[in-house]
Write a protein that binds this DNA or RNA. Structure first.
Lengths: 149, 149
DNA sequence: ATGTTTGCAAATCATTTGCATAGTT
DNA sequence: AACTATGCAAATGATTTGCAAACAT
């Protein structure tokens, strides 16, 4: 059963946070969203941003992304999709429609854990950073990973 | 070309940190390793632990794992493998010999990023926690993920 | 009226860093 | 001797929390 919209209070702060997050598909950090929201609500505090982002992700209204080790990022798109992080500038891109595989079943055979979730993440170079990169350099980057055992 | 053992100094601290990490395949945090190492080197500081773990992972002698959002974990096993994190107790298990796929190529078609790395992580329930769990409950857990759109 | 949420400031917690001293090569 | 690493303590930075006042239902 799907969780329903929570019975909790829709404050102006909460409403604007949701609206701005829907407007900004760039997977902003709490701090970035704080600056965005302050343009309409100059007195909002960072604590309120954090409390609401936490509340909203726990209620499946938004998604919290752990793709960046330093700062959490937030995404208003709930539909299943995955993310690429640019190794140059940190920008996060979306990956929709990843083909289904039986990887969880496969992994279940390789461990004594019961697998309940699969979280693929990708690293890459975004279009803007590709343009700044010399082509030979780019070639060596994509081959780097074969270096490890 | 493989990076060679760095030219830097092999202090007692660094040697013991490597030894203890090899001894403890449990993917310890810096803090846990600090307590372990303190049994042979009571005056070692946490800063030294961090500095060495950082140095060693940058030189490909150990691996730093980002699987736990709160604290980094470290692994002396360099050979390619992946990890499952127990959603109950946090324990981290290893997954060796994951079948190769062309997922990076597939993902490349779904985004305008150039993909350079694929980092699959898994969540699961470890054997000890499975034993503590009623079987109907376990069944519902493995079906939970189908709930989302 | 009642329980939630807010703004603010202080607290927390993992990790990093500055510095003088000690250790390695 | 020359340079790198250590111990210690203080700094950092993201996130969390306590509290009294403001707000939503």
């Amino acid at each position: 059963m799907r969780k329903s919209m929570p019975q909790n209070r829709m404050t102006i702060q909460r409403r604007i946070i949701i609206e701005e997050l829907k407007q900004h598909n760039s997977h902003p950090t709490a701090e970035q969203l704080y600056h965005i929201v302050r343009e309409s609500l100059p007195r909002i505090s960072l604590g309120t941003i954090y409390r609401n982002l936490d509340f909203l992700s726990k209620n499946n209204i938004i998604r919290k992304l752990d793709i960046d080790k330093e700062q959490a990022r937030y995404d208003a798109v709930i539909k299943e999709h995955y993310h690429v992080r640019c190794i140059r500038c940190g920008k996060i891109g979306d990956i929709f429609n990843l083909p289904k595989t039986d990887i969880e079943k496969e992994v279940g055979k390789l461990t004594d854990f019961v697998i309940v979730d699969y979280l693929p993440e990708f690293k890459g170079i975004c279009p803007e950073c590709i343009n700044k990169t010399k082509s030979e350099e780019l070639k060596s980057i994509t081959e780097d990973k074969k270096e490890n055992i």
